[in-house]
Design a binder for these strands. Structure first.
Lengths: 161, 161
DNA sequence: CCTTGCCCTAAAGCAAGGTTGAGGCCCGAG
DNA sequence: CTCGGGCCTCAACCTTGCTTTAGGGCAAGG
């Protein structure tokens, strides 16, 4: 068969290597391994123990990256990913269902930021900053110190520009 | 003079203790010490080496809390705080100037989230997630993997509700 | 005076999300 | 056959923003 001359895209039946996946997603190899260790992806192994990925894993990793960009933790993302069907490759509809979660999240977050902006105008803006009555200290879902650990609401790249 | 019967608020000339500051701001004592170690506040010391704060430090700490709520890192906050006048107590106008920074930040952030929401609708929403052309991976100021360290855009309290 | 409570420092620890390094296997090219 | 590159596993380390712990000091009230 002349079809096995790899017609431009190998589409190798034995899957993609971790390096290939890294190249396609822009993720570091170490990050991909880490995601596996966290149960976000489950590549299979070939005979010599190397990870092999399906093309659908690229989409899965893309989802992970996007969700992280939206502020989701690994645990949160894992919780979303288990909603995908096991046993078959997720369809566009499956992904859409997950994305709706973040859509709603985004709506909440935007509303919250707008409230924050109003508060900022009213509170720091006026110079009062008196904190006994300032709503800025608990902008909605801020735990306020009950329990350790990083609590962040919004972030930006530290130390850039 | 009968005025020195501490008229309800001591206003002790020797300043507030760290515990008093903690009580008024809601911060943990350890957090306040940490902020000092990071150069965000510079209390003086009394004869026995204890920290003493001015009332203006409450406002300073309030600012820190608010800025953190808005996603600023310690380094970023420090960079803002150096803009305050040295040598005199900041006025409401001084604080207002700093707050404008975050106001602008917030505006950018909101705009960015709205863009993200559109992208989400258009991109994950459609199921493409193909990442070669998806704008979701670089929503404006995301570094995209050049350099280590946590890069977050938005966050929410992990593991709540 | 003595106890109690707040204060001090320095160092270690925690959590998240990875990165880095050491030591080793396997595969394909020359 | 040998070299180089990629892959493997663990384990240690990194950064941020604190908290906790250990070991001690000082001051105010009874």
């Amino acid at each position: 068969m002349s079809a096995n001359k790899t017609l431009r895209r190998p589409l190798r039946k034995d899957g993609l290597t971790i390096g290939e996946i890294a190249g396609r997603t822009g993720l570091a190899v170490s990050a991909i391994r880490y995601y596996e260790s966290e149960g976000l992806i489950t590549p299979w192994r070939n005979d010599s123990g190397q990870r092999r990925f399906e093309r659908a894993d690229i989409r899965r990793l893309s989802f992970i990256m996007i969700a992280q960009g939206l502020g989701a933790s690994i645990a949160e993302i894992r919780a979303q990913l288990v909603r995908l069907p096991k046993g078959r490759t997720p369809t566009a509809g499956d992904w859409r269902r997950l994305s709706e979660h973040y859509r709603a999240d985004l709506d909440r977050r935007i509303a919250q930021l707008e409230k924050l902006r109003n508060d900022l105008d009213g509170c720091i803006g006026c110079g009062c900053l008196s904190l006994e009555r300032c709503s800025l200290y608990n902008p909605g879902d801020r735990a306020g110190g009950n329990g350790p650990g990083p609590r962040y609401l919004l972030g930006d790249s530290p130390g850039r520009d």
